[in-house]
Amino acid sequence: MTTEHDIARPGAATGPLSGRSPRRARVLGRAAARLAFLGPGVGYLIVLLIVPLALLLSYTIFRRGRFGGVVYETTGENFSRLVDPLYLDVFLGSIQTAAITTLAALLLGYPTAYAIARLPRRWKTIALVAVVLPFWTNFLIRVYAWVILLSGPGLVNEALTGIGLIDEPLELLYNQGTIVTGLLYSYLPLMVLPLYAAIERLDPQLREASANLGARPARTFWSVTLPLSMPGVLTGCMFVFVPCLGNFVIPEILGGGRSIMVGNLIRDQFLKARDWPFGATLALAVIAALVVLLFLQAWASRVYGGTGERRA
């Protein structure tokens, strides 16, 4: 490096190595720097991300081995099993559960983010930190808390019988609603944050202009605020939908094995049934669903592309 150092310094170009021009040395130095900075990270990601993903996806066309792993004989069997009603129902059910959760998060998260954005500066920070705080605690324990809350003798049943709404404890655990509650609880902060960022950025003058032109608050919301905060809505929906779709822990703890999602199927193919090729095919289906969604999101965000930001 010291020789390069000398060459790169204009004054040193007349030294013993002056056969190479300083400019060429600089280009070489840049190439070396490029390699030094990008090489390790890119290399690591190629070996431990791209190769494993490629390997996993290649398994979709092979037969299962008897004790796990694969036999390298091509087959279309994995894909035809994918449309078996047994698996298709679980897959579509997972998309439904993830979609319901995303919608619920949007309905609860939007007014929350809107209210936070209108708080005085000091309270804004506190309210935002309070939204994120539960997110930084162990995910499994947060889910487990709902088992305590929703079980037969749990707090929710206690409260409902206490105020006389019900006589018998309800069976609140182990159904789709419970899973949605757990997913919503786990990922709601991921909806609130991008929504807050989008709403906070809006120019308040636009709302005022709308009101001055005679629009009612509802009209202003539907024709000004909501369309302009659409990028935040889309980001938030992606942030919630993606981790919901592949989840297997929440359905297991709160679904009690009775309601399962595609994540549970994938987990079982790898750890119980030892049918890796079919597990890989299910994973490919999840990735495909997410890619379609990403394209939809990219398209929608172009339609609603960034306007209405507060000007400096």
Binding site: L45, L48, V51, L56, G69, L245
Partner: peptide, 27 residues
């Protein structure tokens, strides 16, 4: 492309990354 590549592990569902690595380690 490199930008997208660098962000990929952050947006990929954890389950997919987990089974891909399991398959890789086994291979």
């Amino acid at each position: 492309l490199l930008d997208a590549f660098g962000l990929l592990p952050a947006v990929l569902p954890d389950l997919v990354l987990a089974i891909a690595l399991l398959v890789f380690y086994a291979a």
